[in-house]
């Protein structure tokens, strides 16, 4: 059943031989070693696995390789430029937007996708876009503050 799929991840092209219905998340983590994208639920309900796929925040745990084929994918590993953190990453540090931090890559990818669309997103819009991203440390106040910081700067 395996087929060859081409995906571009963080600007690099990869040919992956795998099943068409295998989740993109598994391929990123297990085949490409990009473990920054996290598993949280496997049903698209917590968004720990969020990547940016052709510009859209996307839950990679419910995105099959058939869907991801030929797409342009950005993961948390591709966000910083060398040692220069992306403003959203810096904002999460400045505002203590993490406790255990496991949800943070997904939070940052969701926020980044939002702020590219709407660089000065209002608080309401941020909450609307981010409320799908679970944080079991429940650090929502600081996460909101981080995205608001990034929204004002960008």
């Amino acid at each position: 059943m395996a087929s060859t799929f081409t995906i571009r991840v963080n600007g690099r092209q990869h040919a992956v031989v795998t099943d068409a219905d295998r989740p993109l998340l598994d391929v990123l983590r297990e085949d490409l070693g990009l473990t920054g994208t996290k598993f949280g639920c496997g049903e698209g309900a917590c968004r720990a696995c969020t990547v940016i796929l052709d510009g859209q925040a996307t839950q990679s745990c419910i995105t099959t390789m058939a869907t991801a084929a030929d797409a342009e994918i950005e993961t948390i590993e591709g966000l910083a430029s060398g040692d220069q953190l992306h403003p959203v990453q810096q904002a999460f540090i400045d505002q203590s937007g993490m406790q255990c931090g496991y949800c943070v890559p997904g939070q940052i990818m969701s926020a980044t996708a939002l702020l590219r669309e709407d660089p000065h997103a209002t608080r309401e819009k941020i909450i609307d876009a981010m409320t799908g991203n679970l944080c079991r440390c429940c650090n929502y106040g600081n996460i909101l503050a981080a995205v608001e910081q990034a929204a004002a700067r960008e």
């Binding site: 920054g36 993961t75 590993e77 953190l85 999460f92 540090i93 931090g101």
Partner: peptide, 11 residues
């Protein structure tokens, strides 16, 4: 600030 924060935000 949290020790290890950069490693977290960069994945």
């Amino acid at each position: 600030p949290k020790v290890g924060a950069v490693a977290i935000v960069t994945g």
